[in-house]
Design a protein around this nucleic acid. Structure first.
Lengths: 170, 170
DNA sequence: GCAAATTGGTTTTGTACCCAACTAATTTAC
DNA sequence: GTAAATTAGTTGGGTACAAAACCAATTTGC
């Protein structure tokens, strides 16, 4: 609910505020039609919803993606994982430490290259991943319901196109 | 470039890696089709691109949205601003302090309610906003080019729908 | 083979964010 | 009119992230 006023555009009025305050008719100006702004709002909202969905299992969306990628690519290195995940490798350091401490993953030094770790899930990690996958599925179904089945593929394609192309050409 | 592998889905191979390492054929599993994940990636990418676009003017996307909202709604309170912006009010405190220190906004105590501030732009703030608007326009045109003019409206509508509906029903 | 460059991971530093607890001003109840 | 509830903003504690500097292991040049 925290974001009740957030989602509407400029032509929109009469938000359910009971205060007569300044916030019921906010003019978003050009912001109202800018993709970047709404991308942020949507991402935030979706993130929150996921946390909500997965609060039973105590693991954030970021951790979930990490777990999934390790599960799908056993032996993956931290750098490759960071890249796949769209995060800096330094961001992963504490996350992986945490996951290891919780007994969800193992990090083994490679024989051939003693700099890098091979990451893989423990049995507990696999179980956790399964549980999370259920939550994530529910979350994604929610999104589906909002997006509409027929637009979903297109929508996803555009999102991918954005992350693929926008940084690419400097 | 940092995100080169990030954008492709599971059926995709042969990324331009020159290392023969683990990262060229990452299996994203169900992640590949999950909206939340790609929403995050796209948001991050777009954010980065904006920063790049606006690095001449030294102000982040978040600050920009804040400035725009104040410019469009002079006299708005911090709480209303936070809501419109999709952020917690406590997040705004240091941002507004900074903007004030830079001489871009003024905060005046309301006569009628001495708890709240009325925010507005200074002339410098207006000038800054104009400059930023140009950058943001360029950024948005970039996104347009990627999304395609005909899909843009639809895309935006879906983003708005997500932020509007996903948190709303617990 | 050995110095130089590169690469995998960690540390440090700084930013952006949220939440919960707090203070001060205001409104509501009675 | 005063106590209780509410509201605007700040503070403090904690998480998630990136960038740059760093260490150790590895590869490259010659």
């Amino acid at each position: 609910m925290k974001q009740d006023i957030v989602s509407r555009t400029a032509e929109n009025e009469s938000v359910h505020t009971r205060k007569g305050g300044a916030n019921e008719n906010v003019d978003f100006g050009p912001l109202a039609n800018w993709v970047g702004f709404h991308l942020r709002l949507a991402q935030t909202a979706s993130f929150q919803a996921f946390v909500q969905e997965a609060r039973a299992v105590d693991l954030s969306p970021g951790r979930f993606a990490t777990l999934m990628l390790i599960g799908r690519n056993p032996g993956i290195s931290q750098t490759a994982l960071a890249a796949a995940n769209g995060r800096d490798k330094s961001t992963l350091t504490p996350i992986l430490e945490d996951l290891e401490r919780r007994g969800l993953i193992v990090r083994e030094k490679m024989k051939t290259d003693r700099r890098s770790y091979q990451l893989s899930l423990t049995d507990a990690g696999k179980k956790m991943l399964d549980q999370l996958t259920v939550c994530a599925k529910r979350h994604d179904d929610n999104l589906d319901r909002i997006i509409g089945a027929k637009d979903r593929v297109k929508f996803l394609k555009i999102l991918q196109k954005i992350s693929a192309e926008i940084g690419g050409e400097e």
